[in-house]
Amino acid sequence: MREIQLPVNDETIRELRVGEPVLLSGLMVTGRDAAHKWMMETFIKKTKEPKGDDLQVYEALKKLLNGAVIYHCGPVVSGLDSKDYKFVAAGPTTSIREEPYQAAVMKHFNLKGVIGKGGMGAKTLQGCQETPGVYFHAIGGAASFIAQSVKKVLGVYKLEFGVPEALWVIEVKDFPVVVTMDSHGQSQHTVVESASHRVLEELLAQPY
């Protein structure tokens, strides 16, 4: 199985094709609904003024996300009182909710990939081609298993978004994923969606 060390370069990303299983190691940042909305409004579209520590976090994120991947995940974290953070359960969340933001976020931060579940749409697929980047599918619900690949919590930003929505900076080892959208315009999700739609049409046409 292919192993990828993060951050990763464009050449490696272009080699990846839909269907390929990969083990990821290195640094990644979690971010989901609140984080994507905040990044988009404050730094990309700039419809909202930065406030509090926004600019500081932005500077840190620019460095962390460059060539890295973002993980759609709202973990269960222990050690919240002592700040000796540990990921207890950390599977992927449904990615499609970030569809309005993802391509712009990828380009803005030079993200090389997104990890999540359920796949994403046409805009993100386009973003994967342009950046270039890929969509890595993790196994939904496999939270205890995936948490074992998280070796260290290096830090957290925007904890005021809540534990699930904060941006957690983590170091992972052999995080198992499958490429389901690549940088060549291919998406496993489109293939399955259209094939299942054809079957649905046949089923609907059958008599009861």
Partner: peptide, 17 residues
């Protein structure tokens, strides 16, 4: 594997409880 591990370690099967 995850089901087994969660049971053994008393950790949530899915992080979305």
């Amino acid at each position: 594997k995850n089901v087994e591990l969660s049971r053994k370690n008393s950790t949530p099967i899915c992080q979305d409880t």
